[in-house]
Design a protein around this nucleic acid. Sequence first.
DNA 1: GATGAATGAGTATTCATTCAT
DNA 2: TATGAATGAATACTCATTCAT
Lengths: 219, 219, 219, 219
Amino acid sequence: MATRGRTAKPKARSAGARDTILAAARELFGERGFADVSARDVARRADVTKALVFYHFESMEDLFAAVLDDYYDAQSKALEAGFEGEGTVRERLSRLLDGYIRFIDEHRFFPRLVQQEVRRGGPAATRIRKNVRALLDWTERALGDVLPPSGPLSARHFYLTIAGMVIHYYTYAPILGQAWDRDPLGAPAREERRQHLLWVVSTILDGLEAEAGRQRGGR
Amino acid sequence: MATRGRTAKPKARSAGARDTILAAARELFGERGFADVSARDVARRADVTKALVFYHFESMEDLFAAVLDDYYDAQSKALEAGFEGEGTVRERLSRLLDGYIRFIDEHRFFPRLVQQEVRRGGPAATRIRKNVRALLDWTERALGDVLPPSGPLSARHFYLTIAGMVIHYYTYAPILGQAWDRDPLGAPAREERRQHLLWVVSTILDGLEAEAGRQRGGR
Amino acid sequence: MATRGRTAKPKARSAGARDTILAAARELFGERGFADVSARDVARRADVTKALVFYHFESMEDLFAAVLDDYYDAQSKALEAGFEGEGTVRERLSRLLDGYIRFIDEHRFFPRLVQQEVRRGGPAATRIRKNVRALLDWTERALGDVLPPSGPLSARHFYLTIAGMVIHYYTYAPILGQAWDRDPLGAPAREERRQHLLWVVSTILDGLEAEAGRQRGGR
Amino acid sequence: MATRGRTAKPKARSAGARDTILAAARELFGERGFADVSARDVARRADVTKALVFYHFESMEDLFAAVLDDYYDAQSKALEAGFEGEGTVRERLSRLLDGYIRFIDEHRFFPRLVQQEVRRGGPAATRIRKNVRALLDWTERALGDVLPPSGPLSARHFYLTIAGMVIHYYTYAPILGQAWDRDPLGAPAREERRQHLLWVVSTILDGLEAEAGRQRGGR
DNA sequence: GATGAATGAGTATTCATTCAT
DNA sequence: TATGAATGAATACTCATTCAT
């Protein structure tokens, strides 16, 4: 303490302690979930005092919300980029899917945090709902022409179906790894997964078109 | 004590305190996950002293494992029932899917617990892995004729895809409810979901057959 | 429980559960002291239920007292044997010393228990005091001719001195072993220790005689 | 809280809570040994919250180690002081003995703690072993000229013998008091004890010299 | 004799949070 | 902006002991 020379580099402080803390929290919440991360853990990982965590964030809930906010901003950007531009339904949807896959791939524990917050019904739930709404809207716009507005083939089902199949892979990856011939989080496995997902979505579109044909041509 | 009527025989004593505790734990873990449930919570819900929880279960981990075990037994039974019997690939798979859907429907928080344990890499992870393995095996046997052994269209991808789309619905249901025209966990919505899933799986089978045809009929 | 065949041999019970428990307690108290041994520990080591421990002994204190009583009986017997018989002061003292050494050697953790009870000032302290008194009496009778009744060379000092040097060896043995060329509790080391002690006591007797001579011969 | 006068500034805060806690621990461990002292006890005696104990010391073991460390520092200093300086074997040894006696006299429960830690084989045992080693070294250097390097008359036996007779007095003092004509821990009794010890050690040296003479003068 | 179940008070330790500096 | 010290309430888990059977 007093013995550490006064020229000692101020570690985290230089790069903005707030950001350092946020980054540490992002990592930890991702690894262990909200309930399993303590302020002490965050402080340690950020190489900062516990008190400083509470100086920058009112409470642990607050910190968690900040982390979620960051993720949502990133997700929105990723999806907007994917959705923009022209093309056939198939092209737009596949761009949207690609954007979604890439985002989840880069933020693997984001879904965990969301699931957790959904379960907890915490204050961030509103934020989540808004975002889910947006994603659903995009799906509806992208598939509006081929989908009925309600029933088993409505957009909301496909949204949940596709999101589920994208996310689930990462949820179970840690366990699959040990009973698998290769690391499911390695580049080759992930690329294979991407192709699988594209194939499924494409096949679903085929099915929807066939369905539309059947519908039109009188059953 | 003084408040509990003096003729009311203590609940726990009358009928298997162990079971009472297990049931309380099942509920609570389902509602809030492992990390958010304390021994005190379980004791309170089971109307039992905290010490009794530890008399019947060596530790909270132990209690959690017991809960998971119960679920796994139920799941195995549900899937075995679904998988037995004759029929075309399509018939068998749809029975398997139906069994899976029904199980998840009746044990909505089971996936949450599993996801959590996967993340924690806790001692129950081995059990989970074995079970995932079994499910994957069933999928492989059910789809063995129509699926290539590896690549983007291999059984393991379809297993993850289907499991993901079944489970994800329940994961997000609590949030969807408030932005939706009806309760996603009500009977009508769940039946609609079931039809959606059956349609998707059926469509995927169509796609796989088409793919097989393409493969055969000159590349 | 109900599944164990009814012919299963009743383990501890046959040989007198009370004694089995007492033996287990003796071991455990010796190894870890009173405060570090729980009823559960005793029950486990005796392969008996915890409740049975309390059936046979009113409390843990009671069990501890019973263990101490056993030791004191043994000690009394050992010392009486050593002290009886005729001979010179030197002979009688060396027999007493030998008896004491042998007893401590065979009940290595007895001194620990006594020390502990002395410190705790527990109910067994009276018993201990009586015994110390007896030992002191023996020393006084054995050395009465050569010792002044009070002062730095009185019997009580020699009693404490000799007891200390006998006991201390065993107290520190566990630690010495690792920085020593041989096991201090092995037979050769213990025999060497015995010779050392005999030499010291003999030398002290020489000194006392010289002292008596000096006293008599003026100055 | 409400009972503490409102102008009394909280003790702990004013003057090194850490030291207050350490002092309380020193007292309590001395009185009752490690296993019989709880964190709550320490907190109470130090007039401090239980949590603060763990703020300053990672664990009870840690606190115990800190207490032992303090004692060892004091002991080392006491012995070094006693051992330095010139003089005959007899003079140096008697100075060493005097230093040891004085230290034990001022830290009466130190031996208890050490004995306990030896028995527990806890983490502090290494420290203890090092210290015992040092003491033994001193004894060997002080007695090197008159002692054979091995056998019943080697330095290590005399070290254990002398340490035992010094320490044992304090171990049994609480019990002796009640069967004795005066308080064994009062100044006169302790001075008498000191003279006894000096006489014994001096007599042992006489014996050793005689032994050396015998050895030299034809076996 | 023997035991399974039960309990209230205890254990060490960690928590998020506050606050004076 | 930052922090060391402090705390009350919580954590999982163990204790000696009781008692109905």
